[in-house]
Design a protein around this nucleic acid. Sequence first.
DNA 1: CTAAAGATGTCCT
DNA 2: GGACATCTTTAGA
Length: 203
Amino acid sequence: MEVLRRTNEAMMILPRPFYRRNTVKVAKELLGKILVRRLGAIELEGVIVETEAYRGSDDPASHAYRGLTRRNEVMFGEPGHAYIYFTYGMHYCLNVTAERIGHPGAVLIRAAQPIGGIERMKKHRRTDRVVDLANGPAKLTQAFDITHALNGHDLTAGQKVFIVENREPQALEIKSTGRIGIVFGKEKPWRFYIRDNPFVSNR
DNA sequence: CTAAAGATGTCCT
DNA sequence: GGACATCTTTAGA
């Protein structure tokens, strides 16, 4: 039973070529996919409902704008890995890398609709309100227990964190706006979210 | 070496 | 709508 489940899952894990494309396209197409965090025997799952694309020297809002540093090196590496950074002295944010090796790109996962392991997420977040579990980039990492320890993790390996196709794909109405919480590059419409979805961040 | 800002969340008024 | 928590990274002296 368990073996079968994992086999099916393995076939649905988003493959490397999905990520080896234009970051903006990857950001858009990640909407509706399912983020999975395996914690021992249990799995936390959520439908990705909000993302933002960050690129390189053409994107002043990106950590990679001024080139390679120790913090952003994952953004320059193989697509399909987790880029996790620590900010404001207390929060982690999860990105997935895109583009070819040597070309920086990352998609910030800003919000998810919890569909599995919800009781565990409530403990992590210290709230019972499901809409507040992962409706923001740092809330999401808290709900899914994602920290700096997972920086660089291969998201195509089906281990601690990965992303799978939606078993029940639906036609999504996608909206785009400027990105949130940045100073430069506000004019680029690189934030994407599912229209009318109540699990999108409020700001 | 020092300083300032930061891809945020929470609590307060 | 605004203060503030809290600390790493980066830029600049």
